Every structure is written in structure tokens, then in C-alpha cells.
Computed example of a mutant assay.
Amino acid sequence: MNYPKFRKSAELFGVICGGLLISMPAIPQAVAQESTPKINPCPRIFYEEPHNNQVVVPQGCPPNALTQRLAAQGLLPVPATPSQEQTNLGVGGETPQPGVRVPVPSSGDQTQQPSTGAVSTEQPPLLQPRQTPSATIALANGTVNIKLVNDTATNVTFQVIGDTAPRSLAGKSDVTLQGLKAPVTVTFEREDGGQLIVTPQASSEPGNLNVTFNEATNAAQGRSAMRIEPNGSVFLN
């Protein structure tokens, strides 16, 4: 009888089965690791109304309409280019589908140099608006308290850029924002879509600014942002 051959076959079969048992637990673990979703810091809601025109996106995210508008006015730093991982994720944590355009900030128009023919992709610096300050206050250790007074009959949405989320201020009411470090930018918008007349006025106490909202009759009077510089100058846009 071929006992040696049978014994070798049994040993070989045992080695194969043992290897399969050892490798099997690793397969579900690998699948579980691959299925773990990545968290996108730039959710889709930033690019949908009304947030598209009311909320400033975090640094590194593709800019929405409000972020682009404030950056063009010199009220925000130039939006940073998103990381490759964020670009791959797209808006809302999804992989971009064919035909779907994910908003990605431009790195600046390419400028043709007539002398050498070289192409430059360097983005020119943003210029601050040249205008007379609407008010000037004396800061208290570089900080300011802002009292917002809504004299309109409708709610006003406001946001301290980089400090607070959008908040609602009811008509005929007020709120005080304390300890804001200059430079600071505040945006505001009537929830009924109308225009706002914004009147900043320095308080008698250092480091305090009163800002009053009134209804505007035309778009030329409307204002949607306020910037307080480290020297105490207050600009409206």
C-alpha cells in the first residue's frame, strides 16, 4: 500500500487549509478599512441657497458666491486652493461625476509677457478699496464690541467672518457682539431680500461701536458688509 504518498498528500492538504484559515480574517478587515467614508470639510450645503450667498466657507474649501464677492471687495484673504484630497472628494464628500463641475478657485489668469514670451501664473495681490472710512473708533487693546440695532420690521441675518455662524436678529431688536479682535468683518442681509442702510457710530466708551440697520429704498443705498481695521477705521461695502 502507498502509505507514504497518502501521508504526504494529507500533510499538503493540511498546510493549504491552514493557510486559508489564517488569511480569511484579514479579508473582512481590509474591506472594512476600504469602506470607511472620508469626511469632507466642504459640505454641499455651502454651495446651495441660501447658504451660497450667506455663509463664508472655511479656508481650503472651494469658494461659494459670498466668499468670492467678499474676497473681490478686499474684505477677506484670497481663498486658498483646496487640497488634492478635497478636490477628489468634490462638494458634499462625493466623487465628482462626469459632467458635474466642482467649483475650484482659479490660481490667476495666465499673463503673457511681451518682452520674453514667458507665462506667469502668479496671482496679483488684492487691493483694499480706496474709500473714506464711514466711522473711526478707538479700539480697546485691539478689540471692539459691536452693538447691532435692527430698526427694520424684518429679520436680519448677520455673521462675524471666522468667528460666528450666521445668526438672525429680529426686527426692532438689538444684540451686542463682544471682544472681537480687529481686523474683523461682519456681513448682514435682510431675510426678505430687501436692501439695508447701515449706519456705524462710535460710542463714547473706547472699543464700542453702534451699528444701526434701516430699510433702504434702492439698491444704491444697500450695504452688505462692514470691515473694522486694526487702526479703528470702519468701512462699508
Rank of each mutant, 00 (worst) to 15 (best):
S134A: 14
S134V: 09
S134T: 11
S134P: 06
A135G: 01
A135Q: 06
A135W: 00
A135C: 02
T136I: 09
T136Y: 07
T136F: 09
I137V: 10
I137H: 06
I137Q: 04
I137C: 04
I137D: 03
I137G: 05
A138G: 01
A138T: 08
A138D: 02
A138I: 02
L139C: 15
L139S: 15
L139I: 15
A140I: 07
A140V: 10
N141Q: 14
N141P: 08
N141V: 11
G142P: 13
T143M: 02
T143D: 02
V144N: 07
V144Y: 07
V144D: 07
N145H: 05
N145I: 01
N145E: 06
N145C: 01
N145Q: 03
N145G: 04
I146H: 01
I146T: 07
I146Y: 05
I146K: 01
I146E: 03
I146N: 01
K147S: 15
K147G: 14
L148S: 02
L148P: 00
L148D: 03
V149I: 12
V149G: 05
N150E: 06
N150W: 03
N150F: 04
N150Q: 04
N150M: 02
N150A: 04
N150H: 02
N150L: 03
N150G: 05
D151H: 13
D151C: 07
D151V: 05
D151L: 12
T152P: 07
T152E: 12
T152K: 08
T152A: 09
T152N: 10
A153T: 12
A153C: 03
A153P: 02
T154S: 04
T154A: 03
N155I: 06
N155V: 06
N155L: 03
N155G: 08
N155C: 01
V156H: 00
V156M: 02
V156G: 00
V156T: 06
V156R: 00
T157S: 02
T157G: 00
T157Y: 00
F158H: 10
F158Y: 15
F158G: 00
F158T: 05
Q159K: 06
Q159S: 11
V160D: 11
V160K: 09
V160P: 05
I161T: 15
I161F: 12
G162L: 09
G162M: 08
G162P: 05
D163H: 13
D163M: 11
D163T: 14
T164V: 12
T164N: 10
T164F: 10
T164Y: 07
T164W: 10
A165I: 14
A165H: 12
A165R: 13
A165W: 12
A165F: 13
P166V: 13
P166H: 12
P166M: 13
P166E: 14
P166L: 11
R167Q: 15
R167K: 14
R167H: 13
R167V: 13
S168P: 09
S168K: 14
